[in-house]
Amino acid sequence: MQVLRIFIVHVLSALSAAVVYVFGIDYDGYIPYFLISAILFIFYLIFAAPVQYFLNRNPKRFNLKYLLIYIIFSFLVWLIFAISTDPKTTIDFLMGYEIYLFGISFAVIFWVWDSVFLQNKTKIAAKYK
């Protein structure tokens, strides 16, 4: 049941983040939306799942410390992505609003879905008793 919840968190986060991304780049169309959702789902699995696993050892709903951790990791992922795709324009990328818009919004989206589906201390504690 816990694996299903984790999967739901990642799917809902990817879908929500894709909506923000498509509106942020001002692009219409369904094909890019589904492609972006799939890519974001993979990124969430690779980068957010380990952080999520670490934070779920001590679950707390809507904890601002967890949000800050997610934001820091989101910025790191965006920075790694910017450097790996075009190292020459990294400074320009950091000066644009996109990294801040997407970094913070993707972290907030994941934090909300994680808090709703996984950060329930009473259910998790009752499961292990």
Score class of each variant (00 low, 15 high):
9 V>D: 05
43 F>D: 05
47 F>Y: 12
70 Y>C: 01
6 I>D: 05
44 Y>M: 07
14 A>R: 05
70 Y>E: 12
121 K>Q: 14
111 W>I: 05
52 Q>V: 07
16 S>Q: 04
101 L>K: 04
36 I>T: 14
74 S>N: 05
129 K>D: 12
25 I>Q: 04
104 I>G: 09
96 G>D: 12
55 L>V: 11
20 V>K: 07
75 F>W: 02
129 K>W: 08
112 V>M: 11
55 L>D: 09
9 V>K: 02
113 W>H: 07
55 L>P: 08
110 F>G: 04
35 L>E: 09
38 A>L: 14
89 T>G: 15
88 K>S: 14
68 L>E: 03
110 F>L: 11
12 L>M: 12
12 L>E: 01
46 I>F: 12
87 P>M: 04
66 Y>G: 11
23 F>L: 15
24 G>M: 13
39 I>N: 09
123 K>N: 10
75 F>I: 07
6 I>E: 04
44 Y>V: 09
24 G>R: 03
64 L>T: 05
116 V>H: 03
49 A>L: 15
117 F>E: 03
85 T>W: 03
15 L>M: 09
14 A>Q: 04
86 D>F: 00
79 L>V: 09
20 V>P: 08
118 L>R: 06
109 I>L: 10
106 F>M: 02
32 P>Q: 03
21 Y>W: 14
28 D>H: 02
92 D>N: 13
107 A>S: 10
55 L>S: 03
124 I>T: 09
108 V>A: 13
101 L>A: 09
107 A>W: 06
58 N>M: 06
44 Y>W: 02
111 W>L: 07
96 G>M: 03
74 S>W: 06
35 L>V: 10
125 A>E: 15
54 F>S: 13
48 A>E: 02
45 L>A: 10
32 P>I: 06
122 T>G: 01
121 K>I: 11
92 D>Q: 04
91 I>Q: 07
78 W>L: 14
108 V>T: 10
113 W>K: 00
45 L>D: 02
54 F>N: 07
83 I>W: 13
100 Y>Q: 01
55 L>I: 15
64 L>W: 12
37 S>Q: 00
113 W>R: 03
85 T>R: 03
115 S>Q: 04
61 R>N: 08
21 Y>A: 12
112 V>P: 02
111 W>H: 10
49 A>G: 01
42 I>C: 13
59 P>W: 06
89 T>S: 15
117 F>N: 02
97 Y>Q: 06
95 M>R: 14
86 D>G: 07
107 A>K: 06
68 L>P: 01
63 N>S: 15
97 Y>N: 08
36 I>V: 14
75 F>Q: 04
40 L>E: 06
23 F>N: 03
66 Y>V: 00
86 D>Y: 08
91 I>V: 15
34 F>W: 12
42 I>N: 08
120 N>D: 15
80 I>R: 02
20 V>D: 01
13 S>Q: 08
89 T>H: 11
101 L>M: 12
37 S>L: 02
39 I>G: 14
42 I>Y: 03
94 L>V: 07
26 D>Y: 11
106 F>E: 05
49 A>M: 09
62 F>E: 07
13 S>A: 13
28 D>S: 14
85 T>M: 11
6 I>R: 09
1 M>V: 05
43 F>P: 00
3 V>T: 10
100 Y>V: 12
53 Y>T: 09
89 T>L: 06
27 Y>L: 15
7 F>Q: 05
73 F>W: 02
123 K>L: 13
61 R>S: 15
92 D>W: 10
31 I>A: 11
21 Y>D: 11
23 F>G: 04
125 A>C: 01
62 F>Y: 14
